[in-house]
């Protein structure tokens, strides 16, 4: 730790101002905060809440059921980011479908799924497109590439989401937001400035120890002044204008739609789907998928956890029926999930 990071840590440990609730919106922030033990440094009057920014955690049960339908009924090879494999569907996770013969392959990038499609012309490759502003461009790039090359065996099952309308749904649940740095790297900081005008405070934060300490210190110092504030604490990555090429790409390939967030319900115009010109890459259309509605386990309180309305430990199944080995809710699956993070790192 360098001098400035130590200074930031001192500001945090010595904070004596008004009680503050800070929401980290991004799951990777949740993960890093636990990994570093950052919560242990916080004084009693500062509370960190884990928000709905882990794409795995906000992906509804029905999406997993849809993926399993494609794998088992249509014989598609499912490619996905690793975390989704253990997320429970209504009857089973993708890992369970694998035991029934489904082909499920973790990939590092949707572009690798395109490569798999090139190499296996006789197989149908479906990529599970989850994620926010940061991740959606990679899925769009995959679709544009596949279209350019005339690939007929690549498609997306989309559940992409955008943050702005989610912030509206979350308004009032925290005194300040730690904004998700890599979302802002694409989206820019205009929305943060707007939120500030509406009285919502926050800082854009990076992910290293020094970046997180700095961002929290900035929140605490500004909170004492009492005015709404916005500070970009991640300027080495996040520019005010974000990444315009990435946004244009997404606009070319996808358009906004209503979408379901696990726990938050349907938020209007907070999702992204493929435009009609790209219908041949939309797995739902391509394979004539029927409407599939998932049934989540009624005991699971992931929804309230995601909104900061309850702590994972308040949930009846937490740590008993629901563990990382046998997750009931998605928040227990991903290392980023609030419940998994509480389970793994909590209690020390």
């Amino acid at each position: 730790m360098n001098e400035q990071a130590k200074k930031a840590r001192d500001i945090i440990t010595n904070y004596k101002g008004r009680p503050l609730r800070i929401m980290e919106v991004c799951g990777t922030h949740t993960h890093e905060i636990f990994r570093l033990g950052l919560r242990k440094l916080l004084p009693e009057n500062v509370e960190l809440i884990s928000g709905p920014g882990c794409p795995v955690c906000v992906t509804p049960v029905g999406f997993i059921d849809e993926a399993i339908w494609l794998a088992l009924e249509k014989g598609c090879i499912i490619t996905t980011f690793g975390d989704l494999i253990r997320v429970p569907g209504t009857e089973m996770p993708l890992a369970g479908a694998r035991a029934k013969g489904a082909q499920v392959r973790p990939v590092y990038s949707p572009l690798d799924a395109v490569e798999m499609a090139r190499q296996n012309p006789d197989e149908q490759i479906v990529f599970l497109a989850v994620g926010f502003e940061t991740t959606t461009p990679s899925a769009c790039l995959a679709v544009e590439t596949a279209k350019k090359e005339g690939l007929k065996n690549f498609s997306l099952l989309t559940a992409n989401k955008t943050m702005p309308n989610a912030y509206n749904a979350l308004e009032g649940s925290a005194d300040a937001f730690l904004y998700p740095g890599h979302v802002n790297a694409i989206a820019g900081t205009e929305i943060c400035e707007e939120l500030k005008k509406r009285g919502v405070s926050g800082v854009v934060a990076g992910f290293t120890a020094s970046e997180l300490l700095t961002a929290l210190a900035v929140i605490l110092v500004n909170a004492e002044k009492g005015e709404p504030f916005f500070v970009n604490c991640y300027p080495r990555v996040v520019k005010a204008e974000g990444n315009p090429s990435a946004r244009e790409l997404v606009k070319r390939v996808m358009e906004p739609c209503d979408t379901e967030w696990r726990g938050l319900g349907v938020i209007p115009m907070s999702g992204m789907k493929l435009r009609d010109e790209f219908a041949e890459f939309d797995a739902r259309k391509k394979f004539g998928m029927p409407k599939i509605t998932g049934k989540p386990n009624p005991a699971c309180r992931c929804g309230e956890v995601l909104q900061g309305k309850c702590k994972p430990s308040d949930c009846k199944v937490f740590g008993k029926v629901c563990t990382p080995e046998h997750p009931v809710g998605a928040c227990m699956v991903s290392d980023e999930g609030a419940c998994a993070a509480y389970y793994q790192y909590g209690g020390v």
Binding site: A5, S109, D112, P137, S138, L141, E211, R236, V237
Partner: peptide, 19 residues
Amino acid sequence: AGVAIAKITESDEDEANDV
């Protein structure tokens, strides 16, 4: 996810100093 999304400066500590 396999895509370069931003040009950056290398050191997070320099950044912390500035902020």
